[in-house]
Amino acid sequence: MAASAAAAAIEAPIPEGAPILEVQGVTLQYKTREHLITATYRVDFSVYPADRFVLLGPSGCGKSTLLKGVAGFMKPVEGEMRLKGRRIAAPGPDRVMVFQEFDQLLPWKTVRQNITFALRNGGRCSRESDADEIAMSYIRKVKLGGFENTYPHMLSGGMKQRVAIARGMAMEPDILLMDEPFASLDALTRRQMQEELLGLWEETRFTVLFVTHSIEEALLVGSRILVLSPHPGQVKAELNANQHSHANVGSAEFTALQTRIHDMLFADRVLEDETVRRGS
């Protein structure tokens, strides 16, 4: 029931020139064992179709929490999030999430079954043969042809992330949510994956909301960057980055934007190690 409703939502046309995702004045809080923590404070932004929208900020700026909010895993204490005009209330297959952790793949399913599992349960396919066909086409897209019957534990970290991306893209969601998907990879693999992601975007023009703490990655991957201040996360700026790619890394323009964002984030703080991973 819920799955078919979600499927109908995927089919619905997006009005011309309207944002696909609107976030207005969202404050998010979560509880740990001893504390109640405000992760973001009155954040607003809009994502338009085919955006590669990046949430950028240091550890503890609530960017991952914000992504979980959009995915529907957390409810805002104030403000509103709308996907295609409809209020986000619960997780659904119209917003597929790709995580940083390698264990997001179901270890008891092969690469192909991981994708067909999503397609069948997410309400995209009712017939196994259709799901198979779509799964295979996306497995080839992420260059994993020949590995479709392999179990996840036999794959390298980069390959696992590719499967997760293929699984998310195969759902053809309204928006793909990526939570630092390349943060656990080595530098070379990370670069390669960034290029592949851009290649896939060129091919299908999906909309993606991408979380990262690396300024360089934000510039490379993003077309639009939302810069968040730390603890609690507030909007510092929304910048264009569509003109940057791997081709102009190190160019004056690239470095200038990099420095500008860096100053924005760390103006009033002691330099923080850029390689600090996922603390948010």
Partner: peptide
Amino acid sequence: PLRMVGRNYGLRNVRYVAKV
């Protein structure tokens, strides 16, 4: 992450328990 993946693809209640 595995729990969130299951809920992300719309699994609830018995199906969530059985499949994830």
